[in-house]
């Protein structure tokens, strides 16, 4: 379970201005639930994900993953977390099996378990034939599969996907979507960010709409539809953005 409480991140630019990338964000993700973090580019999605994965430290506020605080127990948080993003981040000179084993060991998974899980995952993801090839020689789809295996090798209770389908072809993206659903079936707590409305619509149990670092709306697709009286998520999103402008609140930061 993920609980985000008043999470805020302020960057200070060299020019001296402050940029509030994430502004007092709170939401919750339960076990066996998929929550989509929806927003345009630069809305603060990646910054939120990076804070949840303890790569960035929040300026204020905090979040807990499975009861572990991202500020005070970053090591414990990372141990319970699988992280996958659009750019695969694999070592090109290593073989697929070596990459997965490397990360498994970093998570203190025993070697025997790693080997067994690799066999299981290879079957599920259909990657038996390229498991012993160097990453450099793999296609994007193959790399993405290796990345998936890498992110779940330690069987974490929480999965974070940062724009996982960005730049992927339909088939590979479908693989990812299948994988995200499988994570839910296994009772994991899943949060994924996207700027593609359709994707959020298709996969998410609940949607968290953010814009300029702020929470615009939160709820199931039905609830959002009821709230706005619109059916298409694109329209719903634009409606919320307009509401925020109507409130006349000053938005800190600049265009991106």
């Amino acid at each position: 379970m993920i609980e985000v409480k008043g999470l805020t991140k302020t960057f200070r630019r060299k020019s001296g201005e402050n940029l509030v990338a994430v502004d007092n964000l709170s939401f919750q993700v339960n076990k066996g639930e998929i929550v989509s973090l929806l927003g345009v580019n630069g809305a603060g999605k990646t910054t939120t994900m990076r804070m949840l994965s303890t790569v960035l430290r929040p300026t204020s506020g905090t979040a807990t993953l499975e009861g572990c605080d991202i500020r005070t127990q970053p090591g414990e948080v990372r141990r319970r977390l699988g992280f996958l993003s659009g750019d695969t981040g694999l070592y090109p000179r290593l073989k697929a099996r070596e990459v997965i084993t490397y990360f498994g060991r970093l998570y203190d998974v025993p070697d025997a378990t790693i080997a067994r899980r690799i066999t299981e995952l290879a079957e599920f993801l259909d990657m038996g034939e390229f498991l012993d090839r160097k990453v450099d020689f793999l296609s994007t789809g193959m790399k993405q599969k290796v990345s998936i295996a890498r992110s779940i090798i330690h069987d974490p209770p929480v999965m974070i996907f940062d724009e996982p389908t960005a730049g992927l072809d339909i088939l590979t993206a479908a693989n990812i979507v299948g994988f995200i659903r499988k994570c839910r079936e296994e009772g994991k707590c899943v949060v994924f960010s996207t700027h593609i409305m359709r994707e959020a619509e298709r996969i998410a149990d609940r949607i968290v709409v953010i814009h300029r670092g702020r929470l615009l709306a939160e709820g199931t697709l039905e609830a959002l539809r009821d709230d706005t009286g619109m059916t298409d998520l694109d329209d719903i999103f634009i409606e919320f953005v307009n509401r925020m402008k109507d409130e006349g609140e000053k938005v800190v930061g600049d265009e991106y």
Binding site: S53, T54, G75, R78, F103, L106, D108
Partner: peptide, 14 residues
């Protein structure tokens, strides 16, 4: 450059 640093940072290694 290869985008692997973030993967390494979110792993359990300190």
């Amino acid at each position: 450059e290869r985008g692997t640093l973030e993967t390494l940072l979110v792993s359990a290694a300190s």
